[in-house]
Write a protein that binds this DNA or RNA. Structure first.
Length: 372
DNA sequence: GCCCTATTTCCTGGTT
DNA sequence: AAACCAGGAAATAGGG
């Protein structure tokens, strides 16, 4: 992006803010402009690895949080940061929150301004909503944030899993966990790595080419830890050779002494019943600003929704349940059990489409408004 | 330890 | 052919 209009934007911004009474966030004296404007910043100035602001109400953002927030949008919109003056990024959250749309566009320009305004509104809404919601929903939102952060910054997560291998064997991690094989570099609560923000088909094919293939029975038999004869396998196993079949059902969990490094030390001995799958799905749906195309409402009033990134949602569910071998195939089986209990209703002939049933709750507009 | 609920995993067969 | 759907069977985890 070129910056021929920078000076006019800056000049106009100062005048506008002067007249609108928010000039305290920028140099008030025109004579200061040249020196302040010389404090220009480049895209490389920004470091988006922090993102603490995401978990804080914009009203409480520090100037640093504001800078982080702006930096994220500079990166995501490929905006030329050279055209931004640091002076305009030096305001804190309360100051920022006082600005209306026009003021933000005036300050940050017609390209970046609308993005920033939109984002600010989303952060405000999200935090207001989260303050009114229970801990389970907050946890889901946190999960979404973490998951989407990994989608946005795949490099960081791929480094954690060892990017040399390219696609990481998530299934192997899972079974090794279950069978007392652990990855020394893996931290507790480490979010799943996703190498790219893929479409569903891409997601699946990339999985297939790698490790956590859910569709192939052959691949499901591989990647099993070797310590347990029941789960042992031959790495070269193909159809018809000596590979032992994996028993049905959930693999046994690792014992306390072996799992200690994974357990959250704050976790209760008798943890409260976690969010159910349908509640997890619901919580994603009622946070449209965070679900970023994972799922969408087909008919909000009727409770009809659709999976857009089915494998991604399944991975998130697996992340929540500390089960990195979760797939949409398995998730959808659990969903189908809800038909009988009338938590979900069948939607015939439509792929990836489900409907909340009469025994579900918390997704209707009225309920959300009433609960506030 | 038993029972129950809520999944999780695997599977076969059918549909899109 | 791949992805998805349907539902049976068997298994686990956690709570009561």
């Amino acid at each position: 992006m070129s910056s021929p209009c920078l000076s006019s934007i800056l000049t106009h911004a100062n005048l506008t803010m002067y007249h609108t009474g928010i000039a305290d966030v920028v140099p008030q004296q025109p004579s200061l402009l040249p020196s302040i404007n010389s404090m220009q910043i480049s895209n490389s100035t920004f470091n988006s690895a922090g993102q603490w602001y995401r978990h804080i109400n914009p009203d409480c953002w520090t100037a640093n949080n504001v800078l982080e927030w702006i930096s994220d949008h500079v990166e995501s919109t490929k905006f030329d940061a050279n055209t931004l003056s640091l002076a305009y990024c030096a305001m804190d959250g309360p100051t920022l929150c006082q600005m209306n749309r026009e003021e933000i566009i005036t300050v940050f320009g017609p390209q970046l301004g609308p993005h920033l305004y939109q984002s600010l509104e989303e952060h405000k809404t999200k935090n207001e909503l989260q303050n009114m919601l229970g801990p389970e929903l907050r946890e889901t939102c946190q999960l979404l944030d973490n998951f989407l952060d990994n989608l946005t910054y795949p490099l960081l997560s791929s480094i954690r899993f060892g990017q040399a291998e390219g696609v990481v064997n998530k299934k192997e991690f899972a079974y090794r966990d279950d069978n007392h094989f652990t990855c020394p570099s893996m931290e507790p609560e480490t979010p799943l790595a996703v190498t790219e923000y893929l479409s569903d088909s891409e997601y699946s094919s990339s999985s297939n080419s790698g490790m956590f293939d859910s569709s192939s029975p052959d691949s499901q038999e591989s990647g099993v830890g070797e310590s347990d004869p029941e789960y042992s396998y031959s790495p070269v196993s193909k159809k018809g050779d000596t590979c032992l079949k994996r028993p049905r059902g959930r693999p046994p969990k690792i014992s306390r002494e072996h799992s200690s490094i994974y357990d959250n030390p704050r976790k209760n001995k008798h943890a409260p019943r976690g969010t159910h799958l349908w509640e997890f799905i619901r919580d994603i749906l009622i946070h449209p600003e965070r679900n970023q195309g994972l799922m969408k409402w087909e008919d909000r009033r009727e409770g009809v929704f659709k999976f857009l990134k089915s494998e991604a949602v399944a991975q998130m569910w697996g992340q929540k349940k500390k089960n990195s071998s979760m797939t949409y195939e398995k998730l959808s089986r659990a969903m189908r059990y809800y038909y009988k209990r009338e938590i979900l209703e069948r939607v015939d002939g439509r792929r990836l489409v489900y409907k909340f049933g009469k025994n579900s709750s918390g997704w209707k507009m009225e309920e959300i408004v009433v609960s506030t």
